[in-house]
Design a protein around this nucleic acid. Sequence first.
DNA 1: ATATAGTATATCGTATACGATTTTTAAAAT
DNA 2: ATTTTAAAAATCGTATACGATATACTATAT
Lengths: 202, 202
Amino acid sequence: MITKITYRNQVRELILDKMKTGELKAGESLSLASIARDLEVSVTPIREALTQLEQSRIIKSAPNRGFIIPELNNVIAKDLYQLVATLESLAIENSVYSKSIIKKLKKQQEKIETSNNAIDRVNEDIIFHNILTSQYKNETAQQILLDLKTRIFFYELEFMSLDNSLNQQHNQIINYLENGQIKDAVKILKLNWLQVLDFLKL
Amino acid sequence: MITKITYRNQVRELILDKMKTGELKAGESLSLASIARDLEVSVTPIREALTQLEQSRIIKSAPNRGFIIPELNNVIAKDLYQLVATLESLAIENSVYSKSIIKKLKKQQEKIETSNNAIDRVNEDIIFHNILTSQYKNETAQQILLDLKTRIFFYELEFMSLDNSLNQQHNQIINYLENGQIKDAVKILKLNWLQVLDFLKL
DNA sequence: ATATAGTATATCGTATACGATTTTTAAAAT
DNA sequence: ATTTTAAAAATCGTATACGATATACTATAT
């Protein structure tokens, strides 16, 4: 089944990719004219894509001033981390972890440990979490988590170097899941996400 | 501080209102030309508003076929109810219930009990839940809940008449909150949302 | 009577135009 | 030299135009 993919969708995905590669950073304005030149499309699908990302709160707009990626903000960080912790816990509680998933998690954790720059490490960490929650068959939850993680990505770039217990916790989660100890895994997962809140000062 | 409100935002809110009043129903197509005539604006801000609602998954689009409110679907219902139960529980656990909030809840419960048509009752029920979670200061969570409840509204129109224990459960929640028994309140709240899943057959 | 093909109409997604607003730059006033 | 004002340039949000696609209708073949 071949379906046409609208420019709007393509633009939205391209912009999300630029965030993940660090090409677009927190606090940056998004220039319609500039994006239109880069992508060689009119501003119409770009506006549609950006208004979608606004709805996800990944970006902000103000009338007559255009679109911007929000600056980092500790209050919002707390909100985001708390939500992700809660929704991932829900996902884990509603998942079954087969040997192949456990294997994928272990492999992914190795990628995290061998990544040698901040952007790669954050992206690999997010992929680890995506694998962890991938067995939860709730499309709405998955979309919400995706959006939240896009927003959290910018914070992780700031905070992740502050946290030395990440690898140990991931391995602990994997062990618990391997042994069917879901509740213990959930407890460490929440710790994994929420302990960063201890670093929020400002 | 006066700020301009874009047509896009106005159109989006008007469409959401039409859903809440039952003027727009599950399964209905949204005609750009028709909305443009009604609201006396061009299709541009309408498309921007609709693509935003698509991002919230409140509506769906398919290339070259326009926008539509999704039909009711039991798998999606399960997803939505599970998410709302979880996020409202999180909200309650992170809230403090003053006397004035308890008073508002009681007053709202009276409105539910005296409402005399399905749409009013569902809307008043959703307002009850909004009050219940209003003390949770997490804007992202509130926006997510808002979107989820817009989608659940269509299901509640179908399911709510099947459920006779609603009022009793609300009063129980209020009592528990009044006595500071948060865990008990959360348990009844989850029951309140998740018991409808027993009626899902199809 | 039904299925297929062709035509007309309606609608969608994108491009372009344009008035309104914001930002930047230059000139005038202090 | 600094501040204020005015003008120019850039950008935004919306309206309109238009080619592409889908839908509805009609004619033809089986």
